[in-house]
Design a protein around this nucleic acid. Sequence first.
DNA 1: AGCAGCATGTAAGTGGTTACATGATTGT
DNA 2: ACAATCATGTAACCACTTACATGCTGCT
Lengths: 185, 185
Amino acid sequence: MPRRAQTEVAVLGALSTGPMTGYEVRAAIGETLGHFWHESFGQIYPTLAALEEAGAVRPAPSGRRSRTVYEITADGVDRLRDLLSEPHRAPPARNGLLLRLFFGTHLPDGAPADLLADAERQAEAALEHYAEVRDEITGDDSPEQAYRTMTLAFGEHVARAQLAWARECLAALPDAEGGGAGARG
Amino acid sequence: MPRRAQTEVAVLGALSTGPMTGYEVRAAIGETLGHFWHESFGQIYPTLAALEEAGAVRPAPSGRRSRTVYEITADGVDRLRDLLSEPHRAPPARNGLLLRLFFGTHLPDGAPADLLADAERQAEAALEHYAEVRDEITGDDSPEQAYRTMTLAFGEHVARAQLAWARECLAALPDAEGGGAGARG
DNA sequence: AGCAGCATGTAAGTGGTTACATGATTGT
DNA sequence: ACAATCATGTAACCACTTACATGCTGCT
């Protein structure tokens, strides 16, 4: 399966919740899939045009001429189901933080500690964000929310893992390396 | 900083451990950075050519004419240090597994359970691999190995998190959804 | 002689970002 | 009037993968 198809999944998935403009599709993806997916306008508009060409979406009547509200068609729902069913090929991992840390001996004193402190902060911020999202979606026990909760739980697990890892590594760093990040602990 | 620079980091980092051919650079990256980095030949050879042009690497004498062994120059070491010091911009996340799971209600019965079972297996396999790598590098307390151990620990933490998450989600799935993955537990 | 693995490289295509250009709508 | 934001789209560029083409080396 071409990776391009994944953008179609995101767009069709967003439209499966209701008619939207391209602009709103992007916002919807950012709000609901934000911590594990992302699309830029440069992807969304051409994808919407291709999906319309293929009959998977169609313009819906809207009050203003300056915007095009798209709705998913029956063919589009089928297409979404088909795309979702295709096997999932994960692209090779690329983690810039680990790439830098791996060559930590080539870095100036304190730089590895700074990298780890950044990772710690990122994880903390992510956990705060997830807590807010959890608050928003509690009380809803629809099937959709069950899956949404699973993806949220993934983010939480990984963020907690990163947080624990960063703290362990900071604690294990020799004092000489910790100078750049200031006093810690 | 252009993302291209990260390939340079990987290549220069590999060469910082000793002279190598492009083929060997790729193998070295795959072996030591494998769980968080990857380069294809289509990236490595042009990058080596560009680095040679820039004076960061140079061909070293080798027995055979059919291969070019590169070694890092003093300029190359400087360049590596400079590249490593540049701020790290993480590209937007894209997790195909979560994208599929999020739209789980559009999937046939059992498909979400299959996705989770796959994730569980992946994490188990990763942990087995990491255990082997740990065995290989224990007993070496050089600074290089300290950083290598940190990147390994990251992989372990994240894999354990994914494993726990997948099992929790599988346990939480209603029975009707578990059929496709067979009896579990 | 033949095969597996070493080794180098290029071309085509994909997926994606970024920056730019443009204009409508809404709120103050 | 002005600013912010909604809204659409394109062009240029970048990073990367994949497939292909080619040949060498070492082993059996």
